[in-house]
Design a protein around this nucleic acid. Structure first.
Lengths: 235, 235
DNA sequence: ACCCCGTATCAAGATGGCGTTAAGAATCGC
DNA sequence: GCGATTCTTAACGCCATCTTGATACGGGGT
């Protein structure tokens, strides 16, 4: 079993071992833009310590370190850790690649490299290590949860069925939660520009949403009407 | 029980998908010198079949195939297999690398490449796949079990025969279990982009799946219809 | 008090989507 | 080529959803 299976970690943890501050910052910024938590080390010795203490999901390693060969670091690391290792190097000699990979490296990228390729290879390694998927974003107000990705709405934990128009209407409210949406705005987004005058539709369907989502439809606490203007979703 | 569990496989099995016979022989010789058992395919369609029947430990894939994009092959493969994929390509554009890796590829090697590097990367992929886990091979809901790797479906333990389209439809549902799939999404994935309007097909084939998989096809408990939107597989 | 406008709720009819079956066409394996 | 499987297409009844009209409520202005 995977020992990390139980503990939910939202952001992958990455350790960078790289002596040039410029490249370190460069790579750090890229990884953080992917949502990673990043720790740095500028020597091989420090790198091993960081790999031990931070329990990273990925190690990005430059071969050219001041205090030792990066290949030795990998060999050492592999005695006690299976963390994926992405090797960066200025040397493009095939023998270097073979040595680093056979020592236990998982991928080898030659400088200069592009950030998109680096990130794609990082994603590939994290995916295979089992840290690919993250949680779907769910929006909640009161007892109601809206899962936009699964197109599913629940109230008090139980699934609630919404018709297509009801769902579109709720989506608009959620997307602009807290803000007032005018009748015209809602009608245009849900029914299209030609139905902008049929404010009656809104009343019918808002009643439906309240009946399905509010605890007391007569005293709505979240789907509020701004009389003469429109509707608002209170958070 | 898993029939392959007892039989010790000493030699890794590799499938090569490559249309140029010269490179195919070249790569094959190299892999066999490493002690691999090698199977070949010269088209994308054939490659998928080989990947399904040979149960390889690694897939070596050339992107430039005569009958389809290799990236599509990876995406298809990833619906039912977690086998490591090493991509070979004549194109060194960064966007090609990113596309192939994000589709599910594990490594990307640009032609021309040296045999030592190829083999080192192969060893790295086999090493990691050997100790790590692959995809959970069987997906279950209610009385139904779907073995994506063996392309086999059973209900109450008994094998159920599905036609190709039925199986692809079910694959899509399983791959997005719990999520609502719109008519257009399903039609595009199963019949192709040109049949996006033929929603009737879906009704016919969903009826077929329900007849074969649901205990009471008239009251489906797992293959649910989201009226006006699409379908969803309930877990 | 009364009227008026905006709102809430209910219900019935219209519409189009959906499930099902079956028959002809196409494809595949032998 | 031939038989069998699979796919496409059409037809029909049913039902969820949408539309539309009717009715009631409530506050503000005259």
């Amino acid at each position: 079993m995977n020992p990390a299976a139980g503990q939910e970690r939202l952001a992958p943890v990455v350790v960078i071992v790289e002596d040039e501050p410029q490249i370190r910052r460069f790579v750090r910024a890229a990884l953080e833009s992917e949502g990673c938590t990043v720790w740095e080390a500028d020597t091989a010795a420090r790198g091993l310590i960081e790999a031990g203490t931070r329990k990273p999901d990925l190690l990005v390693l430059d071969l050219g370190l001041p205090d030792g060969d990066g290949v030795d670091l990998i060999r050492d690391l592999r005695n006690w850790s299976g963390v994926p290792v992405l090797v960066l190097s200025a040397r493009s000699d095939e023998s270097d690649k073979v040595a680093a990979l056979d020592a236990g490296g998982d991928d080898y990228l030659t400088k200069p490299f592009g950030i998109p390729e680096l990130l794609a290879r990082v994603r590939a390694l994290l995916r295979r290590a089992g840290r690919g998927g993250d949680m779907p974003p769910v929006f909640a107000f009161g007892p109601v949860e809206v899962d936009l990705a699964r197109r599913q709405v629940s109230r008090h934990g139980e699934a609630v069925h919404l018709t297509p128009i009801e769902y579109r209407l709720l989506s608009q409210l959620v997307a602009n939660a807290g803000r007032v949406l005018t009748h015209r705005q809602l009608l245009r987004e849900v029914w299209g520009p030609s139905h902008v005058e049929h404010a009656h539709y809104l009343r019918v369907y808002m009643a439906g949403l309240r009946r399905k989502l509010e605890d007391d439809p007569a005293m709505p606490r979240h789907i509020l009407t701004e009389s003469g203007v429109g509707y608002r979703l209170a958070v």
